[in-house]
Design a protein around this nucleic acid. Structure first.
Lengths: 248, 248
DNA sequence: CGCCTAGTTGACCAGGTTCAACAACGGTGG
DNA sequence: CCACCGTTGTTGAACCTGGTCAACTAGGCG
């Protein structure tokens, strides 16, 4: 649990930031020089809780993480999913009190970086400050898209949309290709993210499978017909604000 | 339309930022020294459109503004409402392409500040950079709360929650008190913000009026029973991250 | 006065929820 | 190796919140 230098761990963060903005060699080296402490977590374990005042940020190295809010009578709203490279509570840097919880979905490896170190880094490297601010802005853009989905999209489109979104995010950091990716969410998780009941999620999934759009089995998701699915979802990845220089 | 120095205009921004974080004299004077161009807008006029690449940020000086996304078949999702002191497209500073539109709700007065001036200001005053980053993070926190509402709250609670939220925001910049505030939204706007139909909004409003919780007439909203309404809404203002030093 | 927008009402309808029971799966311990 | 158990997934039936459509009313403004 001591602070260690682990350039391999920081590689995830570099790759993630480079998926949304260009970094200089200097930036990369600055990130690599961060001391972090690495911790393993069980599946479904809280990392930070609503009302906490964290003094460090976490970086996902392995596994999936989610953020959620709890309401009365056990109602839960999941507000985001995170994969390696993401810093799910970067915001705690400037928002003292947590207004939601962060927890693992699968078994995870996380790196923790004290706020002071991050603050120091950002003061010394304004370009990194910009990159991380940008990251939190993309986070917000995804919230807007989810809000739009829950507010105005059919249950079919909502589920399809989340599939597309996560695939594109995973692909951007090299964790998915060929329209296949791992899918560790339960139907209950999906329901709580999309404002549906788990029964209904189950029925829509069967329908999407029946239409030959996806295969979902054993924690693996395959897009059998990406064009049809993304059309059904009205999926337009602009809101993810990826920096696709290679696509030019 | 020329750039002018207008400390009075910038007063709104100062008041807004001070509602969420302390500012130094230096910070305040730096903001006041910004050159801005002031423009008036008609009600329901677009300010920035989806897919645009704005080169300036706007600051609301008068009136209400909203942000929205358009889907097929005329479906609309409103993702936020903004009041004087807010900078609804501050994010465009780091997100080149708009993923939604910004438009007025009422007649408005807006100040425009070129991105370069803002960038320059933030580089010279890291504390302002922090304050504005924090502002965008609170923006995101509000998205999360809306998402939770649309996903998991009843229509009654959703409407009540929005009433509470806007009142607290207005009160924080001195635009509301005594549980009364102006309310320029149509029932259709409310519906598109909350993922409901306007017919249903109409019925819920009548119900809230019937229960003696609110009065809503002639663009004026009165909370007749704040405790009951905020309880119904499960409203907890933590997510607004206001800096309530005076409340200590 | 007349027009346009916003608000209101009723009747009908449907997407999605709830409840309850059961099946499939994976991991654990005997 | 198998029996057991908890979790996740699946199914059916009844129900209900909220949507749709269509008509009508009330204000606000030129």
């Amino acid at each position: 649990m001591s602070l260690t230098l682990d350039p391999h761990a920081m590689g995830w963060l570099i790759r993630k930031l480079e998926s949304i903005t260009p970094l200089s060699d200097l930036d990369r080296r600055a990130i690599e020089s961060l001391s972090v402490s690495i911790r393993r977590f069980e599946p479904r374990q809280d990392i930070v809780r609503d009302q906490d005042r964290p003094s460090q940020c976490c970086l996902v190295l392995q596994g999936w993480v989610h953020r959620y809010k709890l309401l009365d009578e056990g109602r839960r709203q999941i507000v985001s999913f995170h994969v390696p490279g993401d810093m799910p509570d970067l915001q705690s840097l400037h928002l003292r009190v947590m207004d939601h919880s962060v927890a693992t979905l699968t078994a995870c490896t996380l790196a923790f970086i004290p706020h002071e170190h991050v603050r120091d880094l950002l003061l010394r490297f304004p370009s990194l400050s910009e990159a991380m601010w940008r990251d939190t802005l993309i986070d917000a853009a995804i919230f807007r898209e989810w809000l739009t989905g829950v507010g105005r999209r059919s249950s079919h489109a909502r589920i399809a949309h989340l599939f597309c979104e996560m695939y594109v995010k995973l692909e951007a950091v090299g964790l998915a290709k060929d329209h296949r990716c791992s899918w560790p969410l339960t139907q209950g998780d999906l329901a709580d993210a999309l404002g549906l009941s788990n029964v209904h999620v189950n029925r829509v999934l069967q329908d999407l499978r029946g239409q030959g759009l996806i295969t979902l089995r054993g924690g693996m998701l395959t897009f059998e017909d990406w064009p049809a699915l993304s059309r059904l979802a009205e999926f337009d990845p602009t809101y993810l604000h990826l920096d696709r220089r290679e696509a030019a």
